[in-house]
Design a protein around this nucleic acid. Sequence first.
DNA 1: CATGTTGCTGCCGTTTCGGCAACAGCTATA
DNA 2: TATAGCTGTTGCCGAAACGGCAGCAACATG
Lengths: 312, 312
Amino acid sequence: MRFHSPAIQYFHAVRRTGSIRAAARGLNVASSAVSRQILKLEQEVGSPLFERNARGLTLTTVGEMLARHVMNVLQDLDRFRSDVASLSGTWHGTVSIACIESLTESVLPDLIASHRGRARRVSFTTEVMGSSGVLEALSRGEADIGIAIALRHPPDLRQVALKRFRLGALVAREHPLARRKTVTLAQCLAFPVINALPELSIYHLLQPLIAQLPETPEPAIQANSIDLMRELAARGVGVAFQTQLGVGRLSRDSQLVFLPLDNAGSPVWSDLGIYVRAERTLPAYTESFLQELVRELGERERRENAAYPQVA
Amino acid sequence: MRFHSPAIQYFHAVRRTGSIRAAARGLNVASSAVSRQILKLEQEVGSPLFERNARGLTLTTVGEMLARHVMNVLQDLDRFRSDVASLSGTWHGTVSIACIESLTESVLPDLIASHRGRARRVSFTTEVMGSSGVLEALSRGEADIGIAIALRHPPDLRQVALKRFRLGALVAREHPLARRKTVTLAQCLAFPVINALPELSIYHLLQPLIAQLPETPEPAIQANSIDLMRELAARGVGVAFQTQLGVGRLSRDSQLVFLPLDNAGSPVWSDLGIYVRAERTLPAYTESFLQELVRELGERERRENAAYPQVA
DNA sequence: CATGTTGCTGCCGTTTCGGCAACAGCTATA
DNA sequence: TATAGCTGTTGCCGAAACGGCAGCAACATG
């Protein structure tokens, strides 16, 4: 089922690899064939598509425009294929997800497991990265669904849903703060804290609030792994901060306690966005999983915000 | 700039014409070439795309799926072309509009004229048809922008905007009703009326209201042309019904008077929808005109609904 | 300076494409 | 019922496009 001219596919491969020879290797063809198709494309468009650096190729402005078109074509071809397959009862395909770390502890594994239970032929590829990386991966067509902190997103992406979760402190069961219902940032900073490094979005949520406090916090541990921070908190090393999303099981086993943050009387929100390329119709199986993801996150949002009292 | 395999374009032509030979004529190639490309496509998809009737070809279910994909590809190619062109300062292209008759008197000619004044290189194709025809033309990819009475639209279309205009009676200046501010349907039916035939949407707006009246109206003129109905009303033949959109100039010349309908104390609305294919990104010049169209219709909606009193 | 990489280009065999003419199947008309 | 006109399909063959091989110059890295 390859009814698009080779030029399209070759161009796509060259854009991804940034090199003609590398693309040729991946396509199992001679590099000369790839080179010629690119040259032919440039001749037909009437403008160079790549800048030839000595160490590979970079897209020109026109090249980026064509890349957008080619991505639309190939992604829609994918959707068409899945539509035809689903007509003959065969539902198969791969859902590719790019997300931030908060989802890996409970939300994503639960969802994928339950989905695979129903649709065995749908496989998954998930890649964990930073919020901006998620958006970029989506833009480059390297993922179908993205979950990230809701920043300003580029116009080629569409925000399917926006869910807010309360940011809270994570402490061991034996921690002095553990018996409270909520905590303020100042109360936490009286103890050793496990700070997020700037590459984590939690850093950018908390930093402005910390800056407002009169006292400078005592030296603390810094980390860039949500998982590590959680485990550290469980061992009583200090107070960690994250949304309750990343702490489902551990808190069920009662090793950890989650305390919603109270910032001058109001909660601290962490906004999670679900993103998709705008110029695209998803394959049925991807759309189906997306709906479940939105529903599940909405469910957790409702449940968690009901479980903890509003900070008057 | 034809970097898509001939099969795609041939398939598209065959779908439109419903015949291989007709498509071949339009493409200036031998019919055998077209036939082979279609056969090759069917082989690669693994399923027939057309049903061979003795008098031409009809799409199968899989064929319709491919048609959707091909339309997405070709329309997006169009957008890409316009993007490249606009990069070199050249803005040209054709905006294709399908709309109902109410727009032809004033809205569309005004807008097109003013737009061509600014962007001389953008040309227009407009086709007038019934509301359902507008939606079908859009679905088939035969128009870029559709304006129709806001019915339930198929999922492959997107309603860009929804504007409501008051339905009213149209009478000559000398008509006995002409001095009123508003009229009820019953008042109109005391005079000869010019009824719309079922192919016009006005019929479906008024019929349920007429059916509620106790008295059966006296025999009247029936027509399927908004223009004709307007001219008849101007000559004092009877009372016509339409939105004020279709009566801009004549009422300015004071030959006609527009009287908003009052139906048991509330206005009678005619909902106008602006539609676009959902799985599509419009070329810049089309998008630009679309924005103007939405703005202009919104402007008229505001102006007209302010010009006439609310029926308490 | 040597080595490895990059993209590009003749040369040539293979594949694909398209035009011509003929064929079978069907419909409408006489 | 016979004929004319349409439909899509199929061999045959020339032309165009494609792809592989080997070699080229340009540049980066050691």
